[in-house]
Write a protein that binds this DNA or RNA. Sequence first.
RNA 1: GGGCGCGUAGCUCAAUUGGCAGAGCAAGUGACUCUUAAUCACUAGGUUGCAGGUUCGAUUCCUGCCGCGCUCACCA
Length: 520
Amino acid sequence: MSFEHELLEQRYQKIRQLEELGFAAYPRKYAYTHTLGEIRQRYDNAGSEELAAARVGVRVCGRLLTVRRQGKAGFAHLMQGGDKLQIYVRQDAVGERDFNLYKMLDAGDIIGAEGYLFRTKTHELTVHVEKLEFLSKALLALPEKWHGLHDVETRYRQRYLDLISNPEVRRVFVKRSKIISALRRTLETHGYIEVETPMMQPLYGGAIARPFVTHHNTLDIDLYLRIAPELYLKRLTVGGLDRVFEINRNFRNEGVSTQHNPEFTMLEFYQAYSDYRDLMDFSEELLREAAAAAGDGATRAQYGEHCLDFSKLARLSMKEAIVELWPDDPTRPTPSDLADARRVAELVTAHNSNAEEKIVLPPGASLGESIGLLFEHVCEPRLIQPTVVYDFPVEVSPLSKNKPDDPAWVERFEIFAAGMEIANAYSELNDPQEQRRRFQSQVALRERGDVETHEMDEDYLRALCYAMPPTAGEGIGIDRLTMLLTDSKSIRDVILFPLLRPEGEIGIAEQLRKLNETGS
RNA sequence: GGGCGCGUAGCUCAAUUGGCAGAGCAAGUGACUCUUAAUCACUAGGUUGCAGGUUCGAUUCCUGCCGCGCUCACCA
């Protein structure tokens, strides 16, 4: 028999033993008077005399973290909701039955304790227990109490253990929730309504990516997990939902990395009768509110070695960004150079002669594609402070409206921070004829074998034919924003259950079955 | 998918040039009525990820596989 199974069996026996003491193995509820957090908040500053005089009675509950037994008395720490509180159990205060329970408790068990608050000799706020209640048994041992759980695979697969033993992990996900809540509140303040559009779509679109495919049995049709909600949300602006947003998952059948998970959370919002400049202003407010929510009011966030200031967004056109962020050397271009295909080709060569990451121009690359690649390589890594970069080449922006004064460029912006793209927005294309042409060219690419292109979405074209108001739309990557605001290096640290390969046989069912046979 | 790295007790980690697989925590027994990584004594706990190979001898060297991490490519 393995040691692990031996532990399991010992602890399983303890369930029978505590039942013999008259405790239920899995009782229904525990009526606590305070959360541990409430007690800490209210009494952390109360002195010994004050507590003794008030004799504050409490019923608290939580998971047992550490137990320190010393004969006929002992201490333990409870944890609940990320807060800890010490309890003091002595036989003459709780009686023999409850003290017998205390003696057989293990770290990880969940208990309730009733008593009064006092301060120990070392001034720690503690519950002097008068009645102990058993609530649930930890049959498996918790990770090591001092070093905690480090194994990255176990942390992701068994996130509950990570949450128990690494307090910082809990803080990250609490912040994530606050960030989403702040975004939602800010959108609602501006008259937005939240909607949910299909995740399973007969045609996928709204982004350039490979989809996951699934199947509906009764209808006998293949469906795609959405790569973006965009085309559905824009249908809603046709329907008169002038300000809509959706916070939900997108699925893209692509590689995983520290910045990519196959399912990820996106905020998308659309605002009718507005253009991309309106969204620049609004984005500033959204990000400021999100940062403040994560930072307890502070709009600065430490990310690695950088202090990111979300109180405002710097703004640069793409052309300005290339000129301004170009290394300070004689090859630096002037704005007019970027209108000249030959000069741009020289700039690519100049960049490649110094840079580690070379730009590889696809055969027959257009001026716009070249500028887009120049921007990615020259500027993206240098965009540390939150920055709006606006006006993109039309060739790299199939869904945006052209600029009225220069059809080579479109009304689009992206927001960067710490070298990472966190938002993408544009004045939405609402001319059905132009939209048909762009679908058509995508279909042509598809026939040449490009699997990531759009299909012709006639239902969407029909919607545009009923007139979509001029509209601006934006997507903000919630996971990446959360990374920035929680100082997380990997997207897996802000997703509770990131995609991993299945683990295979765990064997716990068989072990429990054996216990059931031998233990009864 | 490519490159690099890691995998030793439930957890966190050691193991000299290839020479008897160890420690702390967790666990069991005992002592202890203000401890807090409680302490003290004793006990138990291992197919060194899996499968091969080289060798008198492999945790250590080699090959393949599995899992994870980092990174590149794709992408947000």
